[in-house]
Design a protein around this nucleic acid. Structure first.
Lengths: 131, 131
DNA sequence: TGCTGATAGGTGCATAGTACACTTAGGAGG
DNA sequence: CCTCCTAAGTGTACTATGCACCTATCAGCA
């Protein structure tokens, strides 16, 4: 479970330690599977997709993309344009696609955990009402 | 939204910053709503409830409980027994119960986010199959 | 020419939260 | 006496993030 190439020490979620929290990496892989894009655009797409309009700041997104490239999950090329500053265009690699699959499995697990929480929570409220 | 007493700076999830990741605080509040308990027992109950048997280590749980007491979410009393070492028995406070409600709302939001992720993911795979 | 604003991609620093290893302590059983 | 189980911690290193800030390109405009 959770594609486990280049193994790291301790508690892993999809090959990383605490990367699991915001699912930023997962979203980036997903968005890039849909279509190659540059960081600024991904930031926009994240804002549309992330719940509550809450979104990691630009620095975090750019840093994550650079790291993911180092790890071979994405690849980038500079796109020089007439209009506007050059962009770093990212695309998903095969490794990235594999990891995305692992992420999907992990996300399902997490959702099951949240379901469990809500189930217990609501059941508790129901039995409190009956008293 | 998200019970906002003693307000803190920046991006808050239920009054805390990155506390949202593992939902440890939420689970502790939930388990303590069910019944008062000491840390060691909560650790056990967490192992049963957390997905994949993955569970924060004892140090993390104890530290979180102490912090939560400082913040007035839980209250503790020492329970001296004939058999075994003394235990710190925690119970939920009213403030804690209020925050639990906020957490439940937040958890539902997060689940919706994961649903959205999986929806996009599966839809992408479906359309890839059709090609 | 100079200014502002949008686009684009970053860096530096402080802070939060956790994992891992370790410690303390009581009591039970050999 | 030694070991194990219960119970509650502490110390330290490390990761990931938020916030503030910087650089650069180009467009529009006075």
């Amino acid at each position: 479970m959770c594609g486990s190439h280049h193994h790291r020490s301790h508690r892993e979620h999809c090959g990383r330690t605490r990367r699991a929290s915001s699912f930023l990496e997962a979203w980036l892989l997903l968005l890039l599977k849909d279509d190659a894009a540059h960081g600024y655009e991904l930031l926009d797409r994240l804002r549309q997709n992330l719940t509550g309009g809450l979104c990691p700041d630009p620095g975090t997104v750019y840093r994550n993309l650079r790291r993911m490239e180092e790890e071979g999950l994405v690849a980038s090329t500079w796109e020089l344009r007439d209009a506007g500053p050059p962009r770093r265009l990212y695309r998903l690699t095969e490794q990235g696609e594999e990891l995305l699959q692992a992420w999907a499995a992990h996300v399902e697990e997490c959702r099951a955990g949240l379901d469990r929480f809500l189930e217990v929570y609501h059941q508790m409220n129901r039995s409190a009402d009956e008293e």
